[in-house]
Design a protein around this nucleic acid. Structure first.
Lengths: 356, 356
DNA sequence: ATCAAATAGGTGAACGTTCACAACAAACGC
DNA sequence: GCGTTTGTTGTGAACGTTCACCTATTTGAT
């Protein structure tokens, strides 16, 4: 329990360079009004002594903490994780944000909060008071949790919201918004299939309560309509689970005029589609083309590997971090919003339709 | 840039309860020598005002930071992540450690460090000085990076090393060690197959430079020997990649006396084995049983789903956190070590061998 | 040359908490 | 009854940094 007395502080640097504490502080923070010559001398001392400012002390005297919190729902994260499926977004999100933070001298802290009404206030409040972060990032499904937004606002912590997001926050000045273009992604997939010559393109949707799920349907429907095709003829509902995907795929394939291609709104339902097609004696991609959403590691090792719409999950957090940091500069422009495009990764599960 | 003057501090609590700062501090830290009646009064004020101690201030006056760093190699993590394969350990590790931290009022921070010789000292030093964590966790392949250990020791940060680990650190008092029982895991898999009636059990090893890879071989060999079987007859070398697994599996299946079961040292090689068997016209599990190591989400969605040895990755970090925290209590017992067992998850890829 | 303004640097207080130590009361041994 | 221990509370300094303010020095305009 002995106290550590070994750290080199600003005092040592000041003594070593023969200047006052304040001058050292000015050099550290790149403030003006220091002669280049003096600045160099101080910097030399800093380098020689290996001095690093203590975040704790900096935060105490009112400066930034250089910390950004990535808030996540504890229960959901744990549930996903226990099931060992679908936590792919955790490392994607985390690493994307961390790297962007590192660029700017910030640090991203992944924080799990209990979003139950009665715990939220105390837990989140404790985290904010204890760490005093310079910003927070909210991910679905809590990006528009009004209670969380309220607490963040009360603690004066600027936030960025990822995904989802209506316009219901009526211009709260603290909010940055970053979304992925789900509709555009669906359009990419659909156009890819149309370009290959497909006309009957089935779509397995996600659960209705997810906005991104309906956006994906919208994109597919719009692109079908643009090509003069009737989208709604080949729509089946799923809920992102493997079982629902299998059911929907079987239903599509059992139709009088079955689709020659199917787009599934996520990877697990695409996997189920492949399995259902195989069970029906169809070869992929010869008899049926399949496109997936998500592009998790799962779909690289199927046979054949799946063509998939890739979501820029990592870019999402990275952008959120960048916008948060930028918004804190003096300028104080109105909080920006960003829409990130999705990309299509073409693999072996798509081909021209069988000759009619 | 306006300073925040809204936080409720220990001073407000003291005034509210009509006691000195020190008494409040004692209550916060659960120190003895406070009358129950007084303690209650202070606690009431704390609750009413919603007071939360500031970590920054606590750290400044020499107490704990309640932060534990999970150190990871930046380049390797990024490379794995860009490739979108094999980062499964990131969220497993992270969440296991975070939950254990939360139990004890600590917080886990995932920190990527550049392990290049010339950057390591500066970067890691900066992280330690800035955050002043109460402990650090090292994961493979840097669990025995002497340079990192040296820097941690110099900064008086106790550490826990996960995986790998010879005894080459000659009793440095700061080191806690947590390992997974790779040998035991391999024995479990082998015994499972032997119990099913298999006699010719092939093994696809990992790269020789990974100690865990050779431990897995050892376990398989030992269990084979215990059953009076010659292990080395069916050993093929792989390097954890899909391609190497395919090559090894083809070699095993092309033998005069091909194995009736194959254990692959990781999931990707197991996937390759399934594909190779299918290409050779074999049905799994009727003609060939396959067991995998790792148990990532990948192997749940293959057909058939893979029987796999599950690694307690999350428990690994959780245990490390627990041991680190325990080691800091007054007792100061010699640093402990833990060996975590693996478990076998039986799915559809194993069955009795075909009747001879 | 003179005065105002801009630039370069220093000084003491403050941030919120804990530590070391002092002060006092109560309980105890004899 | 007196000195000694034990338990409870308070006081001032310290942690490492930045802020607000102050003092020189230099620059520029008149």
């Amino acid at each position: 329990m002995a106290r550590r007395r070994l750290a080199v502080t600003i005092k040592h640097v000041a003594a070593d360079a023969g200047v006052s504490l304040q001058t050292v502080s000015r050099v550290i923070n790149n403030e003006p009004n220091v002669r280049p010559e003096m600045r160099e001398r101080v910097q030399a001392s800093i380098d020689r002594l290996g001095y690093v400012p203590s975040i704790a002390a900096q935060r105490m005297s009112g400066s930034k903490s250089y910390l950004i919190l990535a808030l996540n729902d504890r229960e959901r994260t744990i549930a996903d994780w226990r099931a060992r499926q679908g936590t792919d977004w955790v490392d994607q999100m985390l690493l994307g944000g961390m790297l962007e933070c590192a660029e700017h001298g910030y640090r991203l802290i992944f924080e799990l909060v209990d979003t139950h009404e009665d715990h939220l206030e105390r837990e989140l409040g404790a985290a904010l008071a204890a760490l005093q972060p310079d910003g927070a990032i909210l991910t679905p499904p809590h990006s528009d949790n009004q209670e969380i937004l309220r607490i963040l606002t009360r603690h004066h912590v600027p936030y960025a919201r990822i995904g989802a997001l209506g316009d219901e926050d009526g211009g709260s000045p603290a909010g940055v918004r970053v979304s992925m273009d789900d509709e555009g992604g669906a359009r990419l997939a659909t156009r890819h299939l149309i370009d290959l010559g497909h006309r009957r393109i089935g779509f397995i949707s996600g659960p209705a309560e997810y906005r991104l799920a309906s956006w994906r349907v919208d994109g597919w429907r719009a692109e079908m309509a643009a090509a003069g095709l009737d989208g709604d003829a080949w729509l089946e509902a799923g809920d992102f689970s493997y079982a629902s995907g299998a059911r929907a795929a079987r239903a599509l394939l059992a139709r009088a005029a079955p689709p020659s291609a199917i787009i599934a709104s996520n990877d697990q339902m695409a996997l189920a589609t492949i399995e259902a097609a195989r069970a029906a004696g169809l070869d992929i991609p010869r008899d049926l083309s399949v496109v997936s959403f998500d592009n998790t590691p799962l779909v690289r090792f199927t046979t054949p590997p799946l063509t998939a719409v890739d979501q820029p999950i990592a870019e999402t957090t990275a952008t959120a971090v960048r916008l948060l940091i930028e918004a804190q500069r003096e300028g104080a422009t109105p909080p920006p919003a960003a829409l990130l495009p999705m990309t299509l990764v073409t693999r072996g599960s798509t081909a021209p339709p069988p000759a009619a």
